[in-house]
C-alpha cells in the first residue's frame, strides 16, 4: 500500500507531539525546525527512527538520523517516503 505524504506527516506529527513534546496541542508547522529550533534534542531522533520502522516499515540508517536530514516534519516525511 502506497503511503501518501499527508498520511506520513499526520502520523509523524501525532507521534512527535505526544511522545516527544508531551504537548498534543502544540501548533507544529510542517517546516518548523524541530531540533535546531530546540523543540526536541537530536537524541530523540532514535525514537523517530524506531517509530518509522514500526509505523511505516522503513529503516532509516543511524547515519541518516541527522539534524541535516530530519530537522522538520517535511524533511522527515521525505526521508520516510524515500524508503
Amino acid at each position: 500500500m502506497a503511503l501518501s505524504r499527508e498520511d506520513v506527516k499526520l502520523q509523524l506529527r501525532d507521534f512527535i507531539l505526544k511522545e516527544l513534546l508531551n504537548n498534543p496541542s502544540y501548533p507544529l508547522q510542517d517546516d518548523e525546525a524541530l531540533i535546531t529550533g530546540g523543540l526536541i534534542d537530536s537524541f530523540s531522533l532514535a525514537q523517530v527512527g524506531v517509530f518509522v520502522e514500526t509505523a511505516f516499515n522503513v529503516y532509516i540508517p543511524d547515519t541518516d538520523l541527522t539534524v541535516a536530514n530530519m530537522d522538520t516534519l517535511e524533511q522527515m516525511a521525505s526521508r520516510v517516503l524515500a524508503g
Binding site: 537530536s42 537524541f43 532514535a46 525514537q47 538520523l65
Partner: peptide, 13 residues
C-alpha cells in the same frame, strides 16, 4: 552518536 548512541538507543526502544 551514529555508531554507539543511536544503535543502542534504537535497540532498546
Amino acid at each position: 552518536r551514529d555508531y554507539i548512541y543511536l544503535p543502542i538507543s534504537r535497540a532498546l526502544l
